[in-house]
Design a binder for these strands. Structure first.
Lengths: 167, 167
DNA sequence: TGGGAAATGATGGGGGTCAATGGGATTTGA
DNA sequence: TCAAATCCCATTGACCCCCATCATTTCCCA
């Protein structure tokens, strides 16, 4: 299952926000009923993913040289600052104050699908960035080279940086 | 199965439009009963595809360097702006207001087949473009080089790698 | 081959259901 | 014992299920 689309939901005065039904559906096979969030290191946004994806990240970090600066930094920024957020009975999470502040979220939250992961934004910040993104894509004449069809991926393949099928 | 031909359907006052029977037939093996739509970067049109095609797009993005600017932009413009639209019992979808506005659709929608994908247009905009494009093709004396046939086709073999783009 | 019947696809619209939201009550943990 | 987290229930409005009708095409048989 993929995370797609942009869904804008309200942050209530208790700091709760509904996770879009479509995203919950994409996660319903997960053992943990909830999501993981951590600060994006590049954007004023939050990165979100499933428990199994978080395990994949941890496994990838394991493979980096254990004492490299890069592994240290990634471990700190991702694993160290990640929050495990369970749903309440209505499929909402409580957004920790630290994350609200980091992403400069006010009364609305945009859930933006990115395939295997998603991001949370203040919609007022995201919308202009998305427009800029679209313009750059157009100017760049970017085309996406599609992979050959394979059987439906279940996302369990470790993300080793291989160069296979560079069609 | 391929998407072929141009089919003009009516957008009703609830914002619904029937997906052409031929297109639904091309998708009937999909797990998700519906289509994906997103804004074309190049045209005043909407791009449409199947769930498995969207999975392919996501998988291809996964292979680009995860933190590259280009992958980011494509994720925002395709995955972030895509809409997953299920059929109702009669094979119709609800066209989101955002997409209606983007493609300047009024009371009719043209579904135009493009092989593995298709596009949605306001027919008043598409028809003149189609005429122009046909004229250009004729003047250019364009020919299409066909790929050789591969083994006895019974339709069950996974497709050979293609270079088609996601524009 | 023509015409009428039947099947199928497209369109219109009513109403029930459920996702999103708000807020009170209860429990938990420091 | 207080504050925060969780549970629970109410509200509302968008979406989806259902059915009825209309338009085409297909089929069948004279």
């Amino acid at each position: 299952m993929l995370f797609t689309g942009t869904h804008i939901h309200k942050l209530d005065r208790k700091g709760r926000v509904s996770v879009p039904k479509r995203f919950r559906a994409a996660l319903e096979r997960e053992e943990f009923a909830g999501i993981y969030l951590y600060q994006s290191h590049k954007e004023s946004a939050l990165e979100g993913c499933s428990e199994s994806h978080m395990e994949r990240i941890a496994a990838s970090l394991d493979e980096l040289d254990m004492f490299s600066d890069e592994a240290d930094d990634l471990a700190d920024t991702i694993l160290g600052s990640s929050h495990m957020l369970p749903y309440d009975g209505e499929g909402r999470i409580i957004l920790p104050a630290e994350l609200i502040e980091y992403a400069r979220i006010e009364d609305q939250v945009a859930f933006v699908g990115r395939g295997r992961t998603f991001r949370l934004w203040n919609p007022d910040i995201f919308t202009p960035l998305q427009d800029a993104s679209r313009t750059r894509t157009l100017n760049r004449g970017a085309t996406l080279k599609l992979k050959p069809m394979t059987e439906p991926s279940n996302g369990t393949r470790p993300r080793a940086p291989t160069e296979e099928d560079a069609s």
